[in-house]
């Protein structure tokens, strides 16, 4: 089998002038230990601490000011959940009346038995029997989509799946990228016109799956189709996956339009070629062009 091997190439330095000129609002960049201000009138936000009455940064990133509040947002970090965020996660543990879910957050999230829709309608009572058969609904390793219901004081997330759009995920592909690259939008569920669907979890977990035919109302999100997926669908999904990786490698914000434009630009190339650096660069440039055109 022929394999593609290449030598390392010199990394291109991002020219500061070209990146900075089109942006009028100049961002303050700080590193840990940098004094942001010694004015005591400001409030201490995330990513800062008070050292000898001086407001000092504790992470490397951009300074954000909201009135009197100063925060520093790091470039890359784990997912900090907020109420209402859509997340995709993996079950790590089944406990009494709850599941533990890995969501790329600083602590495992909690999904209570009382905050899921069990098969058989919304108004079903949860009995002791349900507690014993929890593993039949969701077991270790299963993937779910859910929404953040609340955030505990230690930063752990409480999830719920009390809507038919959330629940167990069946056949598809999971792509993990930095949570910072997911654009916050009204909806994070999209049926893309190219023939696949996508769930853009706010936690950086993206789920690609074939667009389902008709929803099974009865199952309440626990029905997973085991029908074989057609080759065409699988190709579309693989192409989307590689497009997502390409977009993430070039730090492009992910939302339905950027993904679609990237998909369209990648069509002349074979799926496996998308990840080659030179092809990737070309596709991303085309995507940037399309996005700019759409904006203006």
């Amino acid at each position: 089998m022929a394999s593609d091997m290449r030598l390392p190439v010199l990394r291109k330095a991002v020219s500061v002038s070209s990146a900075g000129s089109d942006r009028a609002d100049h961002k303050d960049l700080v590193v840990p230990g940098d004094v942001i201000t010694s004015d005591p009138g400001f409030m201490r936000g995330h990513g800062t601490y008070i050292d000898e009455e001086k407001l000092t940064a504790s992470v490397a990133g951009e300074v954000e000011r909201v009135d009197k509040l100063i925060c520093v947002r790091p470039i890359k970090t784990r997912f900090n959940g907020e109420v209402g965020d859509v997340v995709v996660g993996r079950i790590t543990e089944v406990q009494q009346k709850r599941w533990k879910v890995e969501t790329n957050s600083r602590l495992d999230s909690v999904l209570l038995l009382s905050s899921v829709n069990l098969p058989g309608g919304e108004l079903r009572r949860r009995s002791a029997e349900d507690e014993l058969t929890m593993r039949d609904y969701l077991q270790e390793g299963d993937l779910i989509s859910a929404e953040v219901q609340s955030v505990f004081s230690d930063g752990a997330l409480l999830l719920h799946t009390r809507s038919l759009k959330y629940g167990k995920l069946g056949q598809g592909v999971l792509v993990q990228i930095s949570p910072a690259l997911i654009k916050r939008q009204k909806t994070h569920f999209h049926n893309l016109p190219c023939g696949a669907s996508i769930i853009l979890g706010n936690n950086g977990f993206v789920w690609l799956y074939p667009t389902p035919g008709q929803q099974e109302e009865e199952a309440g999100g626990f029905y997973t189709s085991l029908e074989p997926v057609s080759l065409a669908d699988r190709e579309v999904i693989s192409r989307l996956r590689n497009c997502l990786l390409a977009l993430a490698a070039h730090k492009v914000l992910l939302y339905d339009t950027s993904i679609l434009y990237c998909y369209e630009s990648s069509l002349p190339h074979q799926v496996k070629d998308i990840l080659k650096p030179e092809v990737m660069e070309e596709i991303i440039m085309l995507t940037h062009h399309k996005l700019m055109e759409q904006e203006s």
């Binding site: 840990p32 230990g33 992470v59 470039i75």
Partner: peptide
């Protein structure tokens, strides 16, 4: 540690 975005007092 800085790359991971974990808060530190200083380098």
């Amino acid at each position: 540690v800085i790359d991971a975005g974990i808060p530190m007092r200083d380098y």
